[in-house]
Design a protein around this nucleic acid. Structure first.
Length: 126
DNA sequence: AGTCTGACTAGTA
DNA sequence: CTACTAGCCAGAC
């Protein structure tokens, strides 16, 4: 029975220790940047990673996003897509169409799992 | 302790 | 254009 148990990184976040954990710091940074994404804009994992100084570790950003669903304050993970504007993370939402719906609700047009005018909607973190 | 996977990206063939 | 590889780093087994 091929049942791969995918643990969510958020478990760690939820049980974060105020004492200080470096992994938690990285996650927090990702969330912080993600929250700065203006409504109606999107960004890419690589952009966030670069902003954090960990360019090349875009995977870690995606991994951090995996736990963003239950992090408080809420993180607009739906505004984060891959470099070509594709909703690569839609499968990680409650429903695969949830992400697209959230984006369209904010004025982002999505077609075929891709953000329309991605270059115009793209927002680069500071 | 070694191996595999992953919401990524850039480069090469 | 597509296919594959390497780098990245944390977590699960």
């Amino acid at each position: 029975m091929p049942a791969k148990k995918k643990s969510h990184p958020s478990e760690k976040i939820k049980a974060l220790s105020p004492s200080g954990k470096k992994d938690n710091n990285f996650f927090s940074q990702v969330y912080e940047v993600a929250r700065q994404i203006p409504k109606g804009r999107v960004t890419s994992y690589g952009a966030i990673a670069e902003c954090l100084g960990t360019k090349g570790s875009a995977r870690m950003v995606g991994w951090a996003m995996n736990g963003a669903h239950q992090v408080k304050p809420r993180v607009p993970a739906h505004r984060v897509v891959n470099r070509i504007g594709m909703l690569s993370g839609k499968h990680h939402f409650g429903h695969p169409q949830r992400m697209q719906q959230l984006l369209e609700k904010e004025g982002i047009k999505v077609k075929n799992d891709q953000v329309v005018d991605f270059a115009k909607k793209f927002w680069k973190p500071e």
